[in-house]
C-alpha cells in the first residue's frame, strides 16, 4: 500500500514535469512526444490506483488512456504536423522563463486551493490532487501563452489529462460510462480540429491564431 502510494506520487511528479516540459517546449515534434509521455504516465498511474483500490473499471480507463492519448492522438497530431509542415513554433506571447515562473505560481496556488479537500479526504491518492489541478491550470496557461493553433490544442488535451487525473485521484475515477463518453468526445474533437486546421491552413497559409484577427470587418 505504502509502495503503491509512493509510485503514484512519483508518477504524479512525472506528469507535472511533462506538463512543464510542454509549457516551455518550442519544437512541435518534441511537444507531441511530451504529450504522449504524459498520457503514458497517466495510464500507468491509473492502473496502479485501480490495483491499489481494487477498482476493476480503472484498468479499462487505463487501457483507454493508453490507446487514445499515447498512440492515437499523438499519431493524428504527427500526421497533421507533417502534412502542414509545421516544425517550429513562431513565438510565444510571454518569454519562456516568465512562463515557467507563472507555472510554479500556479502549482503553489493549486496546492493552497486543494488544502481543504486534502484535509477531508481519506483516500491514499489525496496528495496527488494539487498536482492534477496544477496540470489543468498549466494546460490552460499553455493555451493562453501560445499563438499556434496546434499547440493550443495540445494545451487543451493536456488540460483534459489533468481533469482525468484529478478524477482518478480524488474519487478513484468517474463511472465508466462517463469516461467512455469523454474519451469519445476527445477523439471526435481531435478529428474536427484536424479538419479545421487544414481549412485554416489553406485559407490563411498559417496556423498562427493572431492572423484570425483579419476575420473581423475592417473599420
Amino acid at each position: 500500500m505504502q509502495i503503491a502510494a509512493q509510485i503514484i506520487g512519483f508518477l504524479a511528479a512525472l506528469v507535472l514535469l511533462t506538463a512543464f516540459g510542454m509549457l516551455v517546449q518550442r519544437r512541435m515534434t518534441a511537444l507531441i512526444h511530451l504529450f504522449a509521455w504524459q498520457g503514458l504516465f497517466l495510464s500507468i498511474s491509473t492502473a496502479v490506483v485501480g490495483f491499489m483500490a481494487g477498482q476493476r473499471h480503472l484498468y479499462i480507463s487505463s487501457l483507454l488512456t493508453l490507446s487514445l492519448k499515447v498512440i492515437l492522438l499523438p499519431y493524428i497530431l504527427h500526421v497533421l504536423v507533417r502534412r502542414l509542415r509545421i516544425h517550429r513554433e513562431i513565438e510565444t506571447v510571454v518569454n519562456v522563463p516568465l512562463t515557467m515562473l507563472i507555472g510554479v505560481a500556479l502549482v503553489i496556488f493549486s496546492y493552497h486551493l486543494t488544502a481543504p479537500v486534502r484535509e477531508l479526504s481519506t483516500l491514499v491518492t489525496r496528495s496527488v490532487l494539487p498536482i492534477a489541478l496544477a496540470t489543468v491550470l498549466i494546460g490552460l496557461l499553455m493555451m493562453i501563452t501560445r499563438r499556434h493553433a496546434v499547440t493550443q490544442i495540445i494545451g487543451f488535451l493536456a488540460m483534459e489529462n489533468g481533469l482525468f487525473f484529478a478524477a482518478t485521484s480524488a474519487t478513484y475515477g468517474m463511472p465508466l460510462v462517463v469516461e467512455l463518453g469523454v474519451a469519445l468526445d476527445v477523439l471526435i474533437a481531435a478529428f474536427i480540429f484536424g479538419i479545421f486546421f487544414f481549412h485554416i491552413h489553406t485559407s490563411f497559409d498559417s496556423l498562427n491564431v493572431e492572423q484570425m484577427a483579419r476575420l473581423k470587418e475592417g473599420d
Binding site: 502549482v107 496546492y111 496527488v128 498536482i131
Partner: peptide, 23 residues
Amino acid sequence: LTEFLGSAFLLATLGMLSYFILE
C-alpha cells in the same frame, strides 16, 4: 542560457514543492 538555467531553477523548485505536496 537563461532558459537552460531557468529550467534548472524550475526543476529545483518543483522538487521542493513536490516534497511538500507528495511526501
